[in-house]
Structures are given as C-alpha cells and as structure tokens.
C-alpha cells in the first residue's frame, strides 16, 4: 500500500533499527538498547528534519546497500563512514553530516565505517515499524523490537509510513573526535583487586578485542588480579560498568547488556565518554583515567550542552 519504501540489497554486518531505546524494564531483564552513539543518532535525525527521536538505521563496520523507491526524500549519514549514492546516471561519493535528496530508483551503498564502529542512516520520514515498550530498537538477543527483533536481512522491504514535507538540505561541520583516555569512576568492588592490579588498570594500555558487540566490549591487556573473590552475588548492571571475571580481562557493559551479573565491578565509564567509547574498533588502545563523581557530572553537562548546541546549529 505504501508507495515509499527501501529494499535491502545487502544488509551489512549488524544492521538494526534503533531509536532512543526503552526504559523502566531492567527489573524484568530488558536493557535500554537504543542507538549506541547517541550524539550521532540525534544529528542524523536533525539533518533530515526528523523528530530527534525517530528510528534510524544503525550499522556496524560494513553498512547496508539499499535501493529507494518513492517520492523525493532526504537522507543523511553520520559517523565516520565511506558511502556511495548511485543515481540514474551518476555515482557520487557521499559525505557524512550532509543531507542528500534521493528519488525513485536511487541507491545508497554504505561501504564501511572508517576506524570506528557505528554509523547511522536517517531518511526524512518515519519508517513503518513495530514498537515494543515505546521503542522500535532491535534487541537481537531477546528478539525484541521492530523486524521481529532481528537484524536486517537481504531482500527485505521496509515501508515508510510518512515522509517529511520539509526537504531543506542541511549540513554541519561536525568531526568525530577520537579519544584514547576513557574516564572511569571507581566501581563498587574496586577493593577486590590487588594494589598491583589497580595500578595496572589505570596505567597500562588495554586493547579492544574482536569479541565486542552491542552487548559488551571485551578488553585484553595485563591481567587484573583479584584478591577477594572472583564472583559476587549477582546484582544489577548498567551500561558502562567494567566487570573483571576470573580470567582478569575486563568487559565493559554496552547498550544491550545482560541486566544482572556476578563479576566484580572495578569501575564504570563516565557518561561523558560513552558515545566515543562505543566507537573504538577492535585493536584500538584504551587507557583508563580515574575521575570523581562531581567532575563526571560537570563534564557530562558540558557534553550535553555541546550536543544541544550542535543540534541547534543544524
């Protein structure tokens, strides 16, 4: 019935619909989910004149190749992404943080993210998606959200139920800053670790492992010795918690994390650094830097003001 839709020619590695995520569900075992890099998610929507909390397509590493059918519409891609837009007679290399008008038959081919993990594709309109608990974010582990809770697959067709009448082309000069130092607040089991282990945690480098996804980021580096107990009575987790299991290799909980865990918590990533943390690709080096609660709160406020400022200029 809908006359505006996309066809998935190639789905990419881990392509899902994401929005602001869902809350008030930890107690039954459902995490927030939602776009991993919140700032890039919001900018993508703003660039195509969407409601800021509209659903976008999130992809990791290799993105999707899609074909659009329907009336003229705007699209925008955020992150650090290499992509092509194929029109009837031409193919152009697209730039992130700019909106483009696409029309019937045009294709968007998202080749890959560049030294980062996640990118976002927004279309000027609203996808026709199923909502669960006020969110269409796909949680592939619990099969919750739109698309039966599964990542996008080849041959799928996704309808747009509405397209934006505002078709102004927009652009911003945002550059993703990369950081090596991730600021961390001391965890509730910090004293489970040896003096030597605590020192290593803040002084040595850790490498992001390939075994990282929307649930968690595994790190490799010097082993952090536990001198109390390598298990705790299972208790709640939040995103950003750094757990250290018996093998001494830290795991950082990300947006689709299990809601309960039984490994000691050495630290928690400060909210200000979360968007940049999730963009660290396997092989990247991380150094943790201790920060206190009040500095973390102040820095987040500044980060949030900067985000609002960026959005207001688009």
């Amino acid at each position: 019935m809908s006359s505006n839709y996309i066809d998935i020619i190639r789905p990419g590695i881990n392509t899902t619909f994401q929005d602001k995520g869902r809350d008030h569900l930890y107690h039954i075992g459902i995490p927030f989910s939602g776009a991993m890099d919140n700032r890039n998610y919001l900018i993508a929507n703003k660039l195509v004149n969407n409601n800021l909390h509209s659903a976008v397509i999130e992809f990791a590493y290799q993105g999707p190749h899609i074909k659009y059918s329907g009336e003229k519409i705007n699209c925008a891609i955020t992150g650090d992404v290499i992509f092509l837009i194929k029109k009837k007679d031409t193919e152009i290399e697209g730039k992130c943080y700019e909106s483009y008008q696409i029309e019937n038959g045009d294709e968007i081919n998202i080749i890959s993210t560049n030294k980062s993990v996640y990118g976002y594709l927004a279309l000027g309109g609203e996808f026709d998606l199923k909502f669960q608990w006020n969110s269409c974010s796909i949680n592939t582990k619990a099969n919750i959200g739109s698309n039966d809770g599964k990542k996008l697959d080849v041959g799928q067709r996704i309808n747009l139920k509405k397209i934006n009448s505002n078709k102004d082309i927009k652009k911003t000069n945002y550059i993703n800053t990369k950081i090596e130092n991730i600021r961390v607040i001391k965890g509730t089991n910090f004293d489970y670790f040896s003096e030597e282990g605590k020192k290593k945690f803040y002084e040595k480098e850790f490498i992001v492992s390939k075994l990282s996804d929307r649930m968690g980021m595994r790190l490799q580096g010097p082993k952090i010795d536990n001198i109390v107990n390598t298990n705790i009575k299972s208790e709640g987790l939040i995103k950003g918690v750094i757990q250290v299991p018996a093998d001494g290799n830290p795991i950082i909980m990300l947006s689709d994390h299990g809601t309960i865990g039984g490994y000691p918590k050495i630290g928690v990533v400060a909210s200000v650094d979360y968007d940049r943390l999730v963009q660290m690709s396997p092989g990247s080096k991380i150094k943790f830097k201790e920060i206190n609660l009040s500095d973390a709160e102040t820095l987040f406020k500044l980060y949030e003001m900067e985000t609002q400022n960026l959005l207001s200029q688009i």
């Binding site: 809350d23 008030h24 569900l25 930890y26 107690h27 927030f32 009575k233 299972s234 208790e235 709640g236 987790l237 939040i238 809601t259 309960i260 909210s271 609660l293 709160e297 987040f300 949030e304």
Partner: peptide
C-alpha cells in the same frame, strides 16, 4: 529515575543524568 534493578540484596536505581543527579 529511568530504571530499577532489584537483586538478592541490592537495588540499583538508574537515572537520567540530564534530569537529575546522585
């Protein structure tokens, strides 16, 4: 407050840092 996680002997209360604080 945007989430509550009761467990055996702990309760974790998550909040939106844009709206409130510790």
């Amino acid at each position: 407050i945007n989430n509550l996680t009761p467990s055996y002997n702990k309760l974790i209360i998550s909040y939106d840092l844009k709206k409130t604080n510790f």
